[in-house]
Design a protein around this nucleic acid. Structure first.
Lengths: 102, 102
DNA sequence: GATTTCCATCAAAGAATCTTGATTCTTTGA
DNA sequence: TCAAAGAATCAAGATTCTTTGATGGAAATC
């Protein structure tokens, strides 16, 4: 996940981020691991609705899952939580976040 | 553009970035100001096609335009080119770029 | 004023995405 | 083995986005 991506692949990642609900899920997982039921309660959404968004995030490589009994626990991918430790370059200031092109 | 945005507004910005052509346009404008015809030639796309994407980027606040004769010149918004000068926090590593939540 | 260049907008078709309810699958515990 | 809990997948309708061709408008040149 650290090699430079094509514009096409990059666009795919932005698509995964381009949804209010998925951003809320990422914020929630930033705090701690959650199962589908936790997220249903927190976001007040139907089970299948949450599952679909989780799949989108997982396919994009943004989150990972592990089974715990009959619960599936979701958390941010390791790559997503790594610290920034490189020289500073030009960046896109998006208000809520900064996008820094390599 | 520097105040924190809601997840909804943030998702809107990611939507603007979630397209291969629009990323190519941003990369092109990162180098220098361009008019629609320049981008048509560069990307090999129909004029209305380019105009539509430019509008999406402009509505999102990512680019700006100015008229020069009968050409419309597009360039990155000032905010987009500002340097990062804050303490480092956790970030999303997207390969082609890093997204750093404030 | 007429023509040309450059571009925005309109209209429409097709593709992709979002959302919901129903069904199916996996795991656990009785 | 059966029932129940938790979650993935399927199917379908609604909405949004992408892309194209056609039309029209603003600025420059003749």
């Amino acid at each position: 996940m650290n090699n430079p991506l094509s514009d096409k692949d990059c666009a795919e990642l932005f698509k995964a981020l381009a949804d209010e609900i998925r951003l809320k899920i990422l914020h929630s997982l930033y705090d701690s691991e959650k199962c589908v039921t936790d997220l249903m309660d927190e976001l007040q959404l139907a089970q299948s609705h949450v599952s679909h968004h989780l799949k989108t995030l997982k396919v994009a490589g943004l989150i990972q899952s592990r089974r715990d009994g009959h619960k599936m626990c979701y958390s941010l991918s390791p790559d997503v939580k790594t610290n920034l430790s490189k020289t500073r370059k030009e960046s896109l200031d998006l208000g809520c976040c900064e996008v820094k092109f390599k």
